[in-house]
Design a protein around this nucleic acid. Structure first.
Lengths: 408, 408
DNA sequence: GTAATATGTTAAGACACTTAACAAATTGTT
DNA sequence: AACAATTTGTTAAGTGTCTTAACATATTAC
């Protein structure tokens, strides 16, 4: 039950119904393709005539294309299959991380083109922008063809204001209040640039996935455990962004207000207990979380190494993982109590060790959730191979075309 | 940017535009009344013809009524004022608290009728339902007239599943998994009963308020500090309910996982630091939080008394309040980091001491919020005299008529 | 080759917003 | 008192979109 904001609403016009149904048709083609007009009519519980008219318009706009005829096992005319016309342009996704930046090129519905490439991340904003420009132009050139670029989505490890395009704080890179979009718009003249925080982008990747078991979930939370802890919250099929576009910072909700110092300056944040650095610190029995960002590339022992050791029988490594698992679960319990989502997704390097830690996580979740039902909230691992950050970056570009229109 | 759920969407029909605009008109009349058709046309940026047709329908349905003619300071025909037709039925709101239950009767847009009455809360479910039945019938009889009852909204201090109508856990009353709605529906045959948690209900009271400074805020959080800590989160003008209808339990997000024992069984919940009992315990220097519910009525020293003493110069009382204020602020910082709302509302007895504690709260908020902007999030006190719980209970009954239709 | 069946299109109807013209009511001026 | 100017509210014709019904198209089974 939503209240209508009397100061900011959208009235319905003659074309509103069409606009709504048009987006529904697009969504259904995207998630069900290949699909026939008759199928769409059944899915939407409307008549074929209406679908014909809606699709005719989408065909004229070249958003949709007709493909091969399908087959039927029963007598009757064969259906004409419809597809999203994804050949018009390409989307570019960039995942900026402390050590390297990853790049993915896709068609306009997010289907990967070519290989994912990566290059070192420059820490000086000017150099950073220039290197991005060079890499993106190179990738576009390699693809060749007349494809235009629909837009560039950039995922950043830190606090960003998507609307103003400012990187508010990215401790991993040592950036504060950098007006990144402005610089990028000069570099990529005429191309739309989208900026988003990594936790929220990961959540986007799930909202806009076409995987059957994933889509159709209105409320979910993505927790990305990496150098930091990023969280994206989805409410009502929409990413929670907040007044200052900084919503979702569950990583800095405390487990203990006088716990270990966090990179944000406060004590006892969840992040300070479960980030990769926290786990490594626990293993080495010392505080390695306060290094300068410049030195990150020189650290040779990673969380992956720790997981390998744990699998190899290193009981100290296993203990460090179990400890992080417990804190992960305790924090997840807070998220569950606060949001009560249908799904929790977890991404990050630690998911590689899920078989080692799952029981510890679940136990801690059950311990602090308020009801038994909440304790059983589905937790799904998103492995690195699914590239949730990059897919989220791509969604920033490709999703708007499929979004629900704002009404009432 | 909302994604359309391909498994659960609402297509637009011929009547969808009308439905949307009809709800907008109702909302605008509710929030702007008295208001003329010409005013509505200006507010909606549409033509008067459309408004005439929309209003004609609402007049025929007796949802809206015409009133006196307005005046103009310029030449021209005088406007006909429109009002929500609130005389058709009454709504009943019940605020169940550990010691007493409060009852308010309003017209169908939430305007109070008569006085607020209260009666002792029975702890045995059967007796509880019977006493409610008796009190409600008495109130309806006293009002007299042909008014029918539009519905009853009940606000409960504990975890409730609004949809199934089950009180999952109300430690203050000692209830667990009581199917309250079922019992109440037998008692009030034919009348709609709505059940909600007190924190969420308070949030509803703000969403559906017609106060100019309050409405028009899409994202807000209501924190109700009383015997327990109830939180209601509003996202996009809609109360966040969650998969199991238990969303918003920020009261049990920890400040320190090995802090004091909370009524929920876990350690260090926010509630265990800032509930009235926690503040009183701090004052008395002992743990009085683990009493049996039956004895609550016999406790003569309340948080109000403590505030009075603090004002009277009792430095121990003031210290206890300041301590709670600090913890309140630290927890609020988590809420702000997680949700980034436009507004935070605070209700409960402790608001009586706001002038004594505000600076301490704000300081703690600033200390743990991630950006300076977040630290400046507006905090508004809702005094007890505004009866947010009761207004929320009423909103449960009166709001659905004004809600935005579900589309796409 | 024909009947049965499913897909997709077309045309007429119904419904709601939109535009334009008009009636109604009021104020200010001559 | 008559008239112009102005605002409110209504009516009628127009346009866009969903809806219904009929029809053409294409395929399978007999």
């Amino acid at each position: 039950m939503r209240s209508i904001n009397p100061k900011d609403f959208t009235k319905a016009t003659r074309g509103t119904s069409r606009e709504i149904n048009r987006q529904i048709v697009l969504t259904l083609i995207r998630t069900h393709q290949p699909v026939s007009r008759a199928d769409l009519a059944r899915l939407m519980e409307t008549n074929r005539a209406n679908i014909t008219l809606l699709v005719k318009e989408l065909l004229e706009e070249e958003l949709v294309r007709e493909g091969a005829r399908g087959t039927l096992r029963v007598p009757g005319r064969k259906p004409t299959f419809l597809y999203i016309n994804s050949g018009k342009g390409v989307a570019i996704g960039l995942d900026v991380r402390a050590s390297r930046t990853f790049m993915m090129v896709t068609d306009s519905i997010g289907k990967q083109i070519g290989e994912i490439v990566s290059f070192p991340t420059r820490f000086e904003p000017g150099e950073f922008v220039a290197s991005l420009g060079w890499q993106v132009r190179k990738a576009l050139h390699e693809i060749g063809g007349p494809s235009s670029c629909d837009g560039i989505g950039i995922v950043f490890p830190g606090m960003v204001d998507r609307e103003s395009g400012i990187v508010i704080n990215a401790p991993k890179l040592g950036w504060k209040n950098v007006h990144l979009i402005e610089m990028l718009e000069k570099e990529f003249e005429g191309t739309e640039i989208h900026l988003e925080n990594s936790g929220r982008a990961c959540a986007l990747s799930q909202i806009w996935s076409t995987r059957g078991d994933v889509n159709g979930q209105n409320d979910s939370v993505f927790v990305s455990v990496s150098d930091g802890v990023g969280v994206g919250v989805v409410i009502n099929g929409e990413l929670m962004r907040g007044k200052h576009n900084t919503a979702g910072e569950f990583g800095h909700v405390p487990l203990s207000i006088d716990g270990p110092l966090c990179s944000c300056g406060a004590n006892g944040c969840w992040e300070a207990y479960i980030s990769n650095l926290a786990t490594l610190s626990r293993y080495f029995g010392r505080d390695i979380s306060r290094r300068q960002p410049e030195s990150i590339e020189t650290v040779e022992f990673t969380i992956e190494d720790l997981i390998t050791r744990a699998r190899g029988g290193d009981s100290k490594a296993l203990t460090a993982l179990h400890s992080s698992a417990r804190y992960l679960g305790l924090g997840l319990a807070s998220v569950i109590n606060a949001i009560d989502p249908s799904f929790i997704y977890i991404g990050g390097e630690i998911t590689e060790a899920w078989d080692l830690i799952e029981s510890h996580v679940r136990e801690a979740v059950a311990e602090r959730t308020l009801t038994r039902e909440l304790g059983k909230t589905t937790i799904r691992i998103v492995p690195a191979i699914e590239y949730p950050r990059l897919r989220g970056a791509i969604a920033l570009v490709t999703a708007p075309a499929f979004a629900a229109p704002k009404v009432a």
